[in-house]
Write a protein that binds this DNA or RNA. Structure first.
Length: 1000
RNA sequence: GCCCGAGUGGCGGAACCGGUAUACGCGCACGACUUAAAAUCGUGUCUCGCAAGGGAUGUGGGUUCGAUUCCCACCUCGGGCACCA
């Protein structure tokens, strides 16, 4: 018997596959295509740990199965090598970043090569290769030369927009563009000087130049995306290096991704991605439907606009808040004596906000001295400045009301008048309400009663329900609510000498009245009484039996009081109430009085729009993406500025615009990129910013389709054949970055017919992390990294692969355990030994039919589980099969070969060797994938579980098709069942092929 | 704060659509082989109980003949967003 020598076997077959080009993929194939893609890595200098290949192994297993299933599989690998880490490394070691990248790529490939991944290495791409980034620049220019035409809902050439301007100006243009655009006619357009034309077009382009407040990191000398900034105790810091980050206004390039907000949202529906990632993207896009209201500023010709999505309470609005950095603020203050003071304070507010770590709950604000009148008739409302109004969301001005937590808190702090238009409806035990019954309405009172000398309030404890409430009761006919309250207090507590302090606002309650079996809708009039003294009359026995009268402190009450509405009454009495933002009965406008605010929301919107009081508007949280870095190591932006500042794009022939050598990669620290110190570069007027890290990764998957093409980013027929990625595997940390940006670019390309699908990645799976044994993240910096090279050396690549797939669910983050890996090694060794045994024969006379059933069931399960990326259960089912085969006297060679085939994607080397030892001359990795034999899976005999009252009491073998009556007869006399059913059977539940439950 | 997701043996985890909870693996215990150990193979391994039987899937309740699975409340952990009107 040969010894299992993983080193020899793995080396041998890796060489053979390589020589025979087993994984080479052709673009000219009649087979159906399948594109399995890994998120390409950033080749870092520190090398891999065992966590890195997990995703690659998963996608490799999947790609191997698809290949064996007869698909033409595209499974490539490449490098995303622009960006900060390589540049940092270059600065630290004073070498060209390109050298660092080359070195790191070599290390990376050496480490990957021993794992046996089935990539077509001939298609490898590298974003820093000029032949690659030529096309990144080309696509950039395409986006730059586009605007978004909302009328046809797609990107169109800017030339078309210029034609429209020349013909009829911009009034009728329906575009996604800068919100601040003056209307001009065709004549006015033609008269504009070139620079003004350029500036105007910039407001429409999908890639545009502008100024923005950005996360500026002085130490790194660059701008960082929000997801590259982390919060720390000392304020925001860079993800890399942990250097301080501040806000700064800088010239930037942007991508108008917001033009695609809706398509990015809608497109999610058709994708086979995890619900979790879709949810993250959905929240990130943050669609919100609302209304725009206008208001006239008093003693001025200004009109201000506000956006609201909680417009059902718009008649409660009592003040405005404008963002402190709003461009209209200075204009608003024009001619006001407090102008300078307000602007100074506004500046302070902005600065305070920018200094992170400040507690924004502590909102600062200042009154502008201006009032505005809204068209709803809410009166003259003061305009305040506060940082919670965001200049980039909605209109930058908020109309505020008592029915918003933040507005409410702000108003309380600055003593601004509030008004409520919703009377709260509290629902007690919503699940108990009977949806079939109508609501029976009742009028009632509730009273907060203060003790005559102590700081205590009267609470009633209901003996039956153990509820604690204030005095409460129904209103009789011919009684005012106040009379009812006084009567109820007397009846329930005996106190008579009381004085009304306040009439509290009404509220309502819906609940299920258990004794009467009714849905109740009670309308409460609420009062606050104070007792003058303890004078009391006798109360009836029927009352004392029901309840007990208690005096409690506020803290005690808060702990035990049952009705929500009464807690609110107490808060109003104490002045500690919060905004009510829930559902309730509207008191205004008159047309909707008495109706429920949540219910009439849509109706109110229509009504307001119809009356011309508001306009519908959709807002998104998502902002345009900054597309520039003040660094060296990125794709140059292929644009040239002349002396007048006119921008010229580089013609396609001149692409790629190659990064020039520089003396120092050190950031200048002024915000300008090292390119600013290259004389020729500046003389030529080239843009000194470079593209951000996400440029190349936004389209690289298209380059794999035709990686060597010199005439296009990929040949049309290649794009038509490969279409898009069928299965994409990578980390979920890219949810709001790469995965969104690539979808955006893909949609732009789709609008031009340059790609054929709306979405780039049809299915997406996210591998979980492998944590270190100590529970922390694995990494060099923690000193807990396990090198895959060591594991491959000791246990073999097949063992590593099987173990990483067997550890647990693919998407879960799990701790590494070098102890547990021996289980996977034993499994492979047992497979090996089994293959060497004499009991595997070509002609076996007696084959256990149960083994055949198990074999084919296993094939079926592996098939299903692989589609679901449930690799861990694939392996466990194959282990079960192996356990069973080991118990057999003899096994048919054909059967064992089926097992070897389904194991092959997980452990390709050892299975290839076994296949070869069995006398085959073909490559196992290219063999057809087995199908489960349906006839062999069919079970004729099944085991029923017998339960009595849901508890397992026995088992019972029977034909699969046994009828309920037959089963009943058969088991009634079984002794272990008989003893339970002597008292008679109430119910007999029969689940075919599975279970019988007898209720006694 | 808001929005997701998850909580099952000593450990990693399994359980399809509501139908035998703890598959598979690790570990541990015992046994076989061995002078011995390792490796390998075999047996056992949630818990209380002598047994009959009872109790366990974060906690408490509900729906159901039957709940890890569905519903409600709470606790803990992980992730996303964070003044988004």
């Amino acid at each position: 018997m040969k010894i299992y020598d993983h080193k020899k076997i793995e080396k041998k077959w890796q060489t053979v596959w390589d020589k025979k080009k087993a994984y080479k993929t052709s673009n000219k194939s009649k087979k159906k295509k399948y594109y399995v893609l890994d998120m390409f890595p950033y080749p870092s200098g520190v090398g891999l740990h065992v966590g890195h290949p997990k995703g690659y192994i998963g996608s490799d297993v999947f790609a191997r199965v698809k290949r064996m299933q007869g698909f033409n599989v595209l499974h490539p690998m490449g490098y995303d090598a622009f960006g900060l880490p390589a540049e940092q490394y270059a600065i630290e070691h004073n070498i060209n970043p390109r050298q660092a990248v080359e070195k790191n790529v070599k290390t990376f490939e050496k480490q990957l090569s021993v794992i046996g991944l089935s990539y077509d290495w001939d298609r490898r791409v590298n974003t820093t290769d000029p032949e690659f980034y030529k096309w990144t620049q080309w696509i950039f220019l395409r986006i730059y030369n586009s605007w978004y035409n909302k009328s046809v809902d797609k990107a169109e050439p800017i030339k078309k927009l210029i034609k429209i301007f020349e013909k009829s100006g911009n009034e009728k243009v329906n575009a996604v563009c800068d919100s601040n655009i003056a209307i001009f006619t065709a004549r006015e357009w033609k008269l504009k000087p070139p620079k003004q034309k350029q500036d105007m077009l910039m407001k429409y382009r999908l890639a545009y130049e502008g100024y923005a407040q950005v996360n500026w990191c002085p130490k790194l000398g660059t701008v960082l995306a929000n997801d590259e900034v982390l919060d720390s105790s000392s304020g925001p810091v860079s993800e890399r290096g942990g250097y301080p980050v501040e806000k700064k206004d800088m010239r930037q390039w942007f991508m108008r991704i917001t033009a695609y907000a809706d398509r990015l949202l809608v497109g999610l529906d058709g994708l086979n991605w995890s619900a979790h990632i879709k949810e993250i993207q959905k929240n990130w896009i943050g669609k919100s439907e609302g209304l725009i209201f206008s208001a006239k500023v008093k003693e001025s010709d200004m009109v201000i606009k506000t956006f609201s999505s909680h417009y059902q309470t718009c008649y409660a609005d009592t003040f405005f808040v404008i963002a402190p950095d709003h461009p209209l603020l200075p204009k608003l203050l024009e001619g006001r004596p407090e102008k300078d003071a307000v602007l100074k304070k506004a500046k302070e507010i902005v600065e305070k906000k920018n200094k992170q770590g400040a507690d924004y709950k502590d909102i600062d604000g200042i009154f502008t001295g201006r009032y505005a009148t809204d068209s709803l008739g809410n009166g003259d409302l003061p305009i305040w400045v506060a940082s919670f109004a965001l200049k980039d969301y909605g209109t930058g001005i908020v109309k505020c009301s008592a029915h918003d937590e933040r507005d409410f808190a702000f108003a309380k702090k600055f003593n601004i008048k509030l008004k409520e238009v919703v009377e709260p409806i509290f629902i007690a035990h919503a699940d108990k309400l009977d949806s079939n019954l109508p609501f029976v309405e009742r009028n009632a009172i509730s009273a907060v009663i203060k003790h005559w000398s102590e700081d205590k309030y009267l609470v009633i404890k209901w003996k039956k329900t153990n509820w604690y409430t204030f005095v409460t009761g129904g209103i009789k006919n011919n009684e005012t609510p106040e009379q009812a309250a006084i009567r109820e207090i007397k009846e329930e507590t005996g106190y008579t000498n009381l004085r009304i302090k306040t009439v509290l606002p009404p509220c309502h309650s819906k609940f299920y009245h258990i004794p009467k079996k009714q849905n109740r809708f009670a309308h409460f009039s609420n009062f606050y009484f104070e007792l003058v003294d303890g004078q009391k009359v006798e109360i009836s026995n029927t009352e004392t039996e029901k309840h007990e009268v208690l005096w409690m402190t506020i803290d005690e009450i808060r702990k035990c009081l049952t009705p929500e509405g009464q807690l609110r009454d107490l808060d109003i009495v104490l002045g500690t109430q919060k905004a009510y933002i829930g559902n309730g009965m509207l008191t205004e406008p008159e047309e909707f009085k008495g109706r429920e605010s949540d219910e009439v929301r849509e109706e109110i919107a229509e009504w307001l729009v119809k009356k011309g009081l508001a306009v519908k508007k959709i807002n998104y949280k998502m902002r345009d993406a900054i597309f520039a870095r003040q660094r060296y190591w990125g794709e140059p932006i292929p644009l040239q500025y002349d002396e007048e500042g006119i921008i010229r794009e580089l013609p396609e022939k001149k692409l790629p615009l190659v990064l020039p050598p520089v003396k120092s990669y050190q950031p200048t620290g002024t915000g300008e990129s090292p390119l600013g110190s290259v004389k020729d570069w500046v003389k030529n007027g080239y843009e000194t910013n470079t593209m951000p890290g996400w440029a190349g990764s936004s389209w690289y998957f298209l380059r794999y389709m035709d990686p060597k093409n010199k005439k296009a980013f990929a040949n049309k027929s290649a794009i038509k054949y490969w279409k898009n990625v069928d299965m994409y595997v990578g980390g979920q940390e890219h949810a709001t970055g790469h995965l969104l940006y690539s979808r955006f670019w893909h949609k732009v390309l789709k609008d031009y017919g340059l790609v054929v699908t709306e979405e780039p990645f049809q299915s997406l799976r996210n591998q979980g992390l492998i944590m270190a044994a100590d529970g922390r993240k694995m990494g060099k910096r923690y000193g807990n990294a396990i090198n895959p090279d060591d594991i491959v050396k000791t246990f073999g690549a097949d063992t590593l692969r099987v173990y990483e797939m067997f550890m647990g669910p693919f998407e879960a983050s799990l701790p590494w355990s070098t102890d547990n890996i021996v289980g996977s090694r034993r499994f492979i060794e047992r497979v090996w030994k089994m293959s060497q045994k004499m009991k595997i024969l070509k002609n076996v006379s007696k084959i256990d039919p149960k083994l055949e059933t198990l074999l084919h069931k296993t094939i079926q399960k592996v098939n299903n589980d692989i589609e679901n990326f449930a690799f861990n259960t694939c392996i466990s089912s194959m282990m079960i099969l192996l356990n069973e085969m080991e118990k057999q006297e003899n096994i048919h060679k054909k059967d064992f070969e089926l097992f070897v085939k389904i194991l092959s994607p997980f452990a390709p080397h050892v299975t290839e060797q076994i296949w070869h030892d069995f006398g085959h001359t073909t490559l196992l990795v290219l063999e057809p994938w087995p199908k489960a034999d349906k006839n062999k899976i069919k079970e004729t005999e099944v085991t029923f579980v017998i339960q009595i009252n849901g508890k397992v009491r026995g088992e019972f073998q029977a034909k699969a098709e046994i009828s309920e009556d037959e089963a009943r007869k058969a088991i009634e006399h079984m002794p272990e069942i008989k003893k339970w059913i002597e008292g008679g059977i109430k119910r007999f539940i029969f689940i075919p092929k599975k279970l019988i439950n007898i209720v006694v």
